[in-house]
Design a protein around this nucleic acid. Structure first.
Lengths: 109, 109
DNA sequence: TATTTGCGTAACCGAATGATTACGCTTATA
DNA sequence: TATAAGCGTAATCATTCGGTTACGCAAATA
């Protein structure tokens, strides 16, 4: 069972949960109310987010408050950030492919 | 079949392919040589990357050159970027959860 | 022209994913 | 103390995922 940040944020519901928790700490039930799926399904998503270190719990009585741990998004951020230069330099599209190919060819081979 | 950037970069092999193509345009076979899995498996990953707009092909003879389209990483970048402020403000960990909870309580309710 | 190369794709398979229902355990409340 | 509320988890299921092998086709080459 792979369990990393990339896999955690691959699911749209889990991304939505993160968005919710970024605003406010919420109990499991109050999260579940915002989605169409069942509460146990939400519990599972929360478990995955917890295992990936993106959220944590704080128990208060019979309630479980979930809060975000945004720091653990950093690895994913760093990975994507590497390519920022590429897209900002417009090294994209077919034209740039040609440019790139030509310059590579001229320089390297 | 969900097919978006987040799902595309969820797989470590696909991330590695993107890393390779960020440096250099490569044929399908030359990509496959860098991994332990079979060429058809690589073809499938490439197909997914293509469907998500992260790469494209250019046919030359019987070879198929793959090149990156980094622009389509931007939506994922933007999504994560939203939380940068959160982790930079150290609104993380149990302590900050408590701070947040208290300030929320004082201000809102 | 016969063969090799580069590749896509179909068929198949086991494992993972995401959902459900059913149940049980704590904790709060009537 | 009986009941309700808040939650986790087990069992189950259909679907998706990621891999394989087998095959076929177009383009290059002998």
């Amino acid at each position: 069972m792979r369990r990393d940040v990339f896999q955690a944020i691959a699911d749209p519901i889990r991304r939505d949960i993160i968005e919710l928790l970024a605003e406010k700490t919420l109990t499991v039930n109050s999260i579940a109310e915002k989605f169409e799926i069942s509460r146990p399904a939400i519990s599972k998503h929360l478990k995955i987010l917890k295992e990936c270190g993106l959220i944590n719990y704080k128990k208060e009585g019979r309630e479980r408050f979930c809060f975000i741990q945004p720091k653990n998004l950093i690895p994913a951020f760093i990975w994507i950030e590497k390519y920022r230069e590429l897209w900002e330099d417009k090294l994209d599209s077919f034209d740039s492919y040609l440019n790139k190919l030509q310059s590579k060819t001229n320089q390297n081979e």
